[in-house]
């Protein structure tokens, strides 16, 4: 464990807490993409297959359970909660995310970390997470105004993977000494997808204006 990875995990956890807070306190999921939440449930389920077979630490087990639990809870709120589901902007959440699932699965079959079921699925989760934010970013571009909690959620979600990139650089020089192309390139793509969001988010924060993405 290093400071970059710990900061990354805490930022990721915070993003999920902010989203759960928004949904529970405002009883609304306006501006949130259900498709991105579905993709994240898939990312966690395919990445943490070794949850019961490989023990790393209490922290590792705990965080995996929290990530799976909270992402399923958010999915449930948006899909089935009688009040929250009314606030889901279904017509704006129009990204064809099934294409992302199929594309990433084919990519994982072609370029897996290793040709075993768990490693192909692990690679799938790495590829899928890199593009999982796309439905959410498309939805934000269509939303007229983005509320603070939603903006903070997306910002923290993007920031966590940027911290993971630092974690990988640190691990490269201190312990692994090998290039891990799949997570590194996926992580770079994932962080790059947030680039323009980061720009407008920081602008709105500096100018104390409402966050607005150009259509």
């Amino acid at each position: 464990m290093n400071v970059f990875r710990l900061a990354g995990d805490m930022t990721h956890l915070l993003s999920i807490v902010v989203l759960l807070l928004k949904i529970r306190t405002t009883k609304s999921c306006a501006g949130i993409s259900l498709k991105t939440q579905e993709l994240y449930v898939l990312v966690f389920l395919t990445r943490y297959l070794d949850l019961f077979t490989r023990y790393f630490s209490v922290y590792n087990v705990l965080m995996k359970l929290i990530f799976i639990g909270t992402s399923v809870a958010i999915f449930w709120y948006m899909r089935y909660h009688k009040v929250v589901k009314q606030t889901y902007s279904k017509d704006l959440d129009s990204f064809r995310h099934y294409h992302l699932i199929l594309g990433c699965f084919l990519m994982a079959l072609l370029i897996p970390f290793d040709f075993s079921v768990t490693e192909v699925l692990w690679t799938f989760s790495i590829y899928l997470e890199a593009v999982a934010i796309l439905p959410q970013l498309v939805l934000l571009q269509k939303s007229r105004n983005i509320d603070n909690l939603t903006g903070n959620y997306v910002f923290l979600l993007g920031a966590y993977r940027a911290l993971y990139l630092l974690n990988w650089i640190y691990r490269f020089f201190t312990e692994i000494h090998k290039i891990r192309w799949i997570p590194w390139i996926s992580g770079l793509v994932q962080t790059a997808l947030y680039a323009d969001f980061f720009y407008y988010y920081i602008q709105s924060w500096r100018k104390h204006e409402e966050l607005k993405l150009p259509a």
């Binding site: 070794d50 490989r54 965080m63 970390f113 040709f115 075993s116 993971y164 312990e175 090998k178």
Partner: peptide, 10 residues
């Protein structure tokens, strides 16, 4: 098969 040394990450 090369060990996946990033498996201890989240």
């Amino acid at each position: 098969s090369t060990p996946n040394d990033l498996k201890d990450e989240l």
